[in-house]
């Protein structure tokens, strides 16, 4: 009952704008605290890896960005489904806000991966399975971005990009599996829901902090971008005018 009411309210940009102020501040504070704690912990207090030495510390910025970059794409796919099923205006706002954030995080993950690869594998760039799947993710983002740029009409732009996001999200598991199967140099995934981490707790605890922090950071930026987009789209309505009066 409560959820249903919440869902109906989400249809109103005004309601979302008002309620999201608090969420945004919450995310911002959490992200700041978690990221600072995680970075200091990872840089200074976590033990060095017995094989990779201190270059191992790059994991604390590389893995969170890569994880969140992919989650952002999947949430775009979910927003796309919401747009098609419920015709919710807010879903397109969310897609528009997710795009630049996801692109930025994917590019960052590729960059820090390259920097980590140099001391570990002896090369800045290796055509490795997971590197390729991150690169493909970047191309998927660029595809949606290019499509959005090409369509002037705001409703059609939203529907077209939602369709591409849905098809892309369905394909992501296949792409991931195929490139992993193809060949991989990567160490096995840092976290999985089903297995115990292979790292000792002193190593993965800061990583967990960083991952949570990065999710909060993405939440903050996406919410902030959504609020700007809402103001832009609703500038002719009474409530936005009342906001600045």
């Amino acid at each position: 009952m409560f959820l249903r009411e919440f869902w109906h309210k989400l249809g109103s940009p005004k309601w979302f704008y008002q309620i999201s102020t608090g969420w945004m501040i919450g995310f911002a504070v959490a992200a700041l605290v978690l990221l600072v704690v995680g970075m200091v912990w990872g840089l200074a207090f976590a033990p060095a890896d017995y094989q990779q030495g201190n270059s191992f510390r790059i994991i604390y910025v590389h893995v969170p960005t890569a994880m969140v970059a992919q989650s952002v794409y999947i949430s775009m796919g979910v927003a796309g489904i919401v747009l098609f099923v419920w015709r919710m205006k807010l879903a397109d706002v969310a897609i528009a806000a997710c795009l630049p954030v996801g692109m930025m995080l994917t590019a960052l993950a590729l960059f820090s991966g390259g920097v980590w690869g140099r001391p570990t594998w002896g090369t800045w760039w290796e055509w490795d399975g997971r590197t390729v799947s991150t690169l493909v993710l970047l191309f998927l983002y660029i595809g949606i971005y290019a499509l959005r740029e090409a369509i002037p009409d705001i409703t059609l732009r939203g529907r077209a990009s939602a369709l591409v996001a849905i098809v892309g999200t369905i394909n992501i598991p296949i792409i991931k599996y195929s490139v992993d199967w193809w060949h991989t140099l990567h160490q096995p995934g840092s976290f999985s829901l089903t297995e115990k981490p292979t790292m000792p707790v002193e190593m993965w605890a800061p990583l967990l902090v960083m991952v949570l922090g990065m999710y909060c950071f993405a939440g903050y930026i996406i919410l902030a971008r959504m609020r700007i987009e809402i103001l832009l789209r609703e500038q002719r309505t009474q409530w936005v005018r009342g906001l600045v009066a």
Binding site: V132, V136, A146, G168, S178, V179
Partner: peptide, 13 residues
Amino acid sequence: LLVLPLFLPVLIF
């Protein structure tokens, strides 16, 4: 740009 990334698994296998 839209379609080639999705063709990747087919190319790999």
